[in-house]
């Protein structure tokens, strides 16, 4: 052979190398398959939902979908033309064309109008439950990280937190139903939903907060204490402000979970349909004790309780699209807030 001199460490193709390459490709394929699946779900919903949410002419956004309540959709033929219209429009139409009063129509519930009450309900649920969870969670984390000394009690608390994290969401729903709805007599209400959801994300918030508190250098605490600060002054002025960005960032996880969960609010806070908006209550005190519509529950309702066809698809994909978008928006705003705080406290 006249090949150039082969040195001792020349890499040579052999079976071992080939099998390694093949194995690596397998791992790579697994990774990208997962990504593709995720992308597939996102893509389908974005692609199909975009048709509902956007439109071709200005302002390019289908505002009624965001500002109207859900209505039934009526499909009928009148004087040789086919119409699709929502409940209110249909009634107005019948008034205008008395001849149409007896027209035969197909109808699908919730398939017209928009999802405004659901968006409002979801925002209320998320804000309320995250406030409760953050207060409880951050305080608990402060105790665990700053005050607690190792002992049986703390081991117990940690065990409880770990176990709480694994409890299925539907069990939280049952618990919330048994305790808040029935035992406390709050009925299906915002308040019941808030506490149920708050308890559900509590472990996430505690763990995230503790991690952020741990990341604050020990020197800050010692330096402060050595200047004669009390423990509480140290925590308030020299620990929590620096941990806050981290706490907020990690709470995104919790927020996404709260916004996305259906099972816990099914029997504690969500109504299939409710005509009034949450602020249209007679007394201010009733605000907390009213059920709301919520995006995830609405998706459940429109995907399981009405048939699948071209007419209903509009609202089904549209709602799912908006819901994904809301979750993404919450995450994005939390990230912005974090960056803002980060630039203020930098070390």
């Amino acid at each position: 052979m006249s090949a150039p001199a082969v040195h001792r460490f020349q890499s040579q193709p052999n079976a071992a190398r080939r099998s390694e390459r093949a194995a690596f490709w397998l791992f790579r394929a697994a990774t990208y398959l997962v990504l593709a699946c995720g992308l597939g779900v996102f893509g389908t919903i974005f692609f199909k939902g975009a048709g509902t949410v956007f439109k071709a002419e200005a302002p390019f956004i289908n505002t009624t979908f965001f500002t109207d309540a859900p209505e039934s959709l009526y499909i009928f033929e009148f004087e040789g033309k086919k119409y699709e219209m929502g409940d209110r429009a249909f009634r107005a139409f019948k008034e205008k064309h008395p001849a149409a009063a007896k027209v035969k129509s197909e109808s699908y519930v919730y398939s017209a109008g928009g999802i405004f009450p659901c968006i409002v309900g979801t925002v209320l649920l998320v804000v309320g439950s995250m406030t409760i969870a953050l207060v409880l969670g951050v305080c608990a984390a402060i105790y665990l990280n700053e005050y607690a000394r190792d002992g049986l009690f703390i081991r117990f608390v940690r065990l409880a937190i770990l176990n709480l994290a694994g409890v299925p969401s539907i069990v939280f729903g049952l618990f919330g139903f048994g305790m808040f709805v029935i035992y406390f007599g709050w009925n299906v209400s915002l308040l019941a939903g808030w506490f149920t959801l708050a308890f559900m994300v509590l472990p996430v918030v505690i763990t995230a907060s503790e991690e952020s508190l741990k990341a604050v250098p020990k020197g800050f605490r010692e330096g402060s204490l050595a200047l004669g600060a009390t423990k509480w002054q140290t925590i308030r002025k020299n620990v929590v402000p620096y941990a806050l960005p981290g706490i907020l960032t990690s709470s995104i996880l919790g927020i996404a979970r709260v916004a996305g969960e259906t099972a816990p609010i099914m029997f504690t806070a969500a109504y299939v349909v409710r005509d009034k908006l949450p602020w249209e209550v007679e007394k201010a005190g009733e605000f907390l004790f009213q059920g709301v519509m919520a995006l995830p529950y609405h998706i459940y309702v429109v995907s399981s309780k009405i048939p699948q066809n071209d007419y209903t698809e509009r609202v089904q994909y549209g709602t799912a699209f908006v819901f994904l978008l809301v979750v993404a928006l919450i995450a994005a705003s939390s990230i912005l807030l974090r960056n803002h705080l980060r630039s203020r406290y930098k070390w």
């Binding site: 996404a256 996305g260 969960e261 819901f323």
Partner: peptide
């Protein structure tokens, strides 16, 4: 972060 109900749908 994809909500399970969206996956169900």
């Amino acid at each position: 972060a994809i909500p399970s109900v969206v996956l169900g749908f």
